[in-house]
Amino acid sequence: MNSKRPVNLDLTTIKFPLPALTSIAHRITGVILFVGLIFGFWALDASLSSPEGFEAVRDTLANNVLAKLIAWGLLSALGFHFVAGIKHLLMDAGIGVDLEGGHRKAQITVVISAILVVLAGVWVW
């Protein structure tokens, strides 16, 4: 190996390209959703157990700020994971699999999921 090759180990000058960021975000939201299953199954279980359980879930989602934040966070994670997943399926279909297309798809993923995050917030509140 040529020792005179330039080496760039200054981390402040290294930037992830957008497709790399959406890729890692897809993984992070996936892990979040897995942990969030606890809340999802709890809500489903309680809401179907009895009329009182249903009211308890409804009341919690309507009045508990922490529950609203969790619901918003999980819906946001779901929205991003969903959109990034569609992007994956497009890549599998061979659509836009080049440098420009990859960047474009990552941009579209960020824009659509940002809209979904806002809509999820509006829905929860």
């Binding site: 809401s47 179907l48 009895s50 009329p51 249903f54 009211e55």
Partner: peptide, 9 residues
């Protein structure tokens, strides 16, 4: 409401 929700499931 509960009746509709549990009816679905």
């Amino acid at each position: 409401d509960y009746a509709t929700w549990s009816g679905l499931f």
